[in-house]
Simulated scan of single mutants.
Amino acid sequence: MTNPSTEYPQTISLLSEEDYVEDGMTEAGRDLKRCADFFVALFCLIVFAPLFLICYIAVRREDDGPAIYKQERIGRYGLPFYIYKFRSMKLNAENDGPQLTASEDDNRLTKVGRFLRSHHLDELPQLYNVLIGDMAFIGPRPERKFYIDQIMQRDPRYQNLYQIRPGVTSYATLYNGYCDTIEKMLRRLDLDLYYLKHRSWWFDAKILFMTFINIVFGKKF
């Protein structure tokens, strides 16, 4: 087994051998996955360009605010990056500081934003994150440092997730949903670590298929 302190000195060097979870995908598999993500993201950006334009105009028309929302998240190797989404909340939504995922009756959501979220259209700009390599299609959902610090106070195994790119969708999202409490985040972590240990092309294909089915049938997650 690779010594985590050698390959990831700034991220998982403090993990014990007992807490370290090794990536289940081979290096060749990771390289092929990245190539596939790049070309599929490029294809989707071209095909869905009209839908991007419609969403952009709809968000802008509602309150004249910016259509694209960016927020710092923590990605591979524990490095920060900006995740992009269509803005679904009012301009002053987080004036009181970071808050966890809004429910559909959250009054911080705009009318257009509520529609975009219910159909997962707000996440379309993440195709750009996949294209440039900040994210993958399948992987643990990226989190803000504000919440990662709280999670790692209770379970330092979160550092294992720094081995791989975060994803647009994930195994944990399918079975744990979006997280609005730290307790749910800790349950999500167990599922993310299971994915990390067992991930493969076949596992990714199943997650992608189930995500598509859930979106088509309107499942909220």
Rank of each mutant, 00 (worst) to 15 (best):
1 M>D: 13
2 T>I: 15
8 Y>H: 12
11 T>R: 07
13 S>E: 04
13 S>N: 14
13 S>W: 15
14 L>P: 00
14 L>V: 13
16 S>G: 09
16 S>H: 06
19 D>H: 07
19 D>W: 08
22 E>P: 06
22 E>F: 15
22 E>W: 14
25 M>V: 14
26 T>A: 11
31 D>M: 15
31 D>Q: 14
33 K>W: 12
35 C>M: 15
38 F>M: 12
39 F>D: 01
45 L>C: 00
45 L>F: 11
45 L>Y: 10
45 L>K: 01
49 A>I: 09
52 F>E: 08
52 F>I: 05
54 I>K: 06
55 C>G: 00
57 I>W: 14
61 R>D: 02
62 E>W: 03
62 E>F: 05
65 G>W: 03
66 P>E: 14
71 Q>N: 05
71 Q>F: 11
71 Q>C: 01
72 E>L: 10
72 E>Q: 13
73 R>H: 04
75 G>L: 04
77 Y>T: 10
78 G>Y: 01
85 K>I: 07
88 S>K: 00
88 S>G: 00
96 D>I: 00
98 P>L: 05
103 S>T: 15
103 S>L: 12
112 V>A: 08
113 G>N: 02
114 R>L: 08
115 F>V: 04
117 R>N: 03
118 S>C: 11
120 H>K: 15
121 L>I: 11
123 E>G: 00
124 L>R: 04
126 Q>A: 07
131 L>T: 00
131 L>D: 03
135 M>A: 06
135 M>Y: 10
136 A>N: 14
138 I>S: 05
140 P>G: 01
143 E>Y: 07
144 R>S: 04
145 K>T: 05
146 F>S: 05
147 Y>I: 12
147 Y>E: 00
149 D>V: 09
149 D>H: 03
150 Q>A: 09
151 I>Y: 08
151 I>E: 08
152 M>C: 09
153 Q>H: 09
155 D>A: 06
155 D>F: 10
160 N>A: 06
163 Q>F: 07
164 I>L: 09
165 R>Q: 12
166 P>C: 06
166 P>N: 04
171 Y>P: 01
178 Y>R: 03
179 C>Y: 07
187 R>N: 12
191 L>Y: 13
191 L>C: 13
193 L>R: 07
195 Y>V: 04
197 K>N: 10
201 W>L: 12
202 W>T: 14
202 W>R: 14
203 F>I: 10
203 F>C: 02
203 F>D: 02
207 I>T: 02
209 F>C: 02
210 M>C: 05
213 I>D: 13
215 I>C: 01
215 I>A: 10
216 V>R: 10
217 F>M: 09
217 F>C: 05
218 G>L: 06
